[in-house]
Design a protein around this nucleic acid. Sequence first.
RNA 1: GGGGGUGUAGCUCAGUUGGUUAGAGCACGUGCCUGUCACGCACGGGGCCGAGGGUUCGAGUCCCUUCACUCCCGCCA
Length: 593
Amino acid sequence: MSKFRTHTCGELNIKSKNTNVSISGWLNKKRDHGNLLFLDLRDNYGITQCVIDKESKSFKDLEKIPLETVLKINGTVLQRSDETVNKDLSTGEIEVKINSHEILGLTKELPLPVFTDQEYSEEIRLKYRFLDLRRKKIHKNIILRSKIISFIRMEMEKMGFLEFQTPILTSSSPEGARDFLVPSRLNPGKFYALPQAPQQFKQLIMVSGFDKYFQIAPCFRDEDARADRSPGEFYQLDIEMSFVDQNDVFNVIEKLMTKVFTKFSTKKMLYEKFPRIKYSEALKTYGSDKPDLRNPLKIYDLTDVFTRDDVKFEIFKKLLKKGSIVRGIVTKQTIDQPRSFFDNIDKWAKSEGASGLAYFSIEKDKNISGKGPIGKFFSENALKEIMEISSAEIGDSIFLACGPIKEVEKILSLARDKLAKDLNLIDENTFAFCWIVDYPMFEEDDQTKKIKFSHNPFSMPQGDINNLNLSKPLDIKAYQYDIVCNGIELSSGAIRNHIPDLMYKLFKVAGYEKKEVDIKFSGMINALSYGAPPHGGIAPGIDRIVMLLAGEKNIREVTMFPMNQNAQDLMMNAPSEVDQNQLKELNIEIKKK
RNA sequence: GGGGGUGUAGCUCAGUUGGUUAGAGCACGUGCCUGUCACGCACGGGGCCGAGGGUUCGAGUCCCUUCACUCCCGCCA
């Protein structure tokens, strides 16, 4: 028996009636009736109500003890009378009558209360994270995270995957995100980099013949934060498999995700077999390569309509001549929405940096006509063409954006979310997964106009790999895919290029000479030259999976000790200045600003 | 690097058109209360109104600068 307790605070029930017990925990809440005092004692497992009256010798002490003091209570389990049962507590049928108590841990005045569900400023929560983590909701989230991770481990092992650790101190790679660097004492002037992902290592594991690998892997990227993106570090379920094609990877992930999401949530899975959407299709139909498929709205290309002579909307027609395109979103039966609904959308679009969203609704009196600010610019025949292209019907509204293709895609993607939210079109009780496939191997850099890898330099190009048309690199697709759930990108992955000759060729297109590849990717290119199996994998983000399952919008709600937006740990005071001697050993001088 | 929001008591927030001594709930302190479970009641302590500058007879409130937190854009192979 423990020195501190016979039971936890979530354990006692009517079966222990009239026995003597000890429980330990935090004083969650006090209700002082003067001659009768109730104390709620809380630990990881639950809350137990303790009661004491004026006659007991502990009464005077306990009355004065502040909330969040850690106490040991010795007492007798009593059955509560019917009227005083608390159905919200697992221990609500009993209470512990206090015989004696012991203070195990004192508290100073609290910077934030623990017992409420109130929202608190991020600053105070992060500084006193240990207090914040005692609170019910986030405490539950962190436990959920632990359970999800062990479940995933179990399922991966069942499917024959082996878990391996890979180095944390490794080398910087030129492609991708900004690296975190660690200076080397033994190699003055040289730096390790923290891995952005164990990408090269997991491929090396395949070359080493281990066949199926996974790891709950920490990844480090020195990029700016977002609500769904921690600064600094995050965790991936890193997976790699040998002798597989794209479908084999999809099968493993679909099976795993379905299991995880049905076990840890009561929300419905919209698709059992995840739809596969080509990257180019996704951009056209959703304006984004991470579409929220719970959202029924689609985007239609209406550029051709604006070349008609019986369409008189001159602003768009002029832009068209300069190479702009027109695309639109149809909302069903919104003609009777108040003017403010439409104006708000237009105003919102301007606040997002677009030149606004033109709109009109389709009505029919004798003839079909356009209603709204730009409705008059369309002939009946032009409207019919629009209705055919977009499946719009009488009573529907159409929101239009005109401009360069990338800008139109961007604003309509955001407008799709905004409209669905305003019109309440999203079923919050579902998970909609999809695959985005057929990513281009290369893309053009917006600023430098140079050809660069669009996703991952190690991906296998599609088509006849012996006769790739490298003169048109932008046409080459890769076996590169993303998995998306409810508009959140969970992961990208690829079938890898395991043929060194082909890799040199592709790197050359992106401006890397053979020598450079040999130096910067030495570990991998060397390994691929000694008999590499065809292989591929994926790496779903653990934090985002937990976020979806916990129903949270912010990744800090499922991260135990997160940093703030400026990549600072307010509790531990990181990053911090270091001793001159430490710098000297590392041959580092700080340049003063 | 850029744009938006927020900043008032330990915590969460109100504070009107610029006008007397800056308020409430929770927490904390004192007292009353034997069945509460966000217990109730009374009283009390607690404020550099984020910081600096300006306008004004007068600034929590208006203007400028700056800092912190947050959301977004850029960035994130």
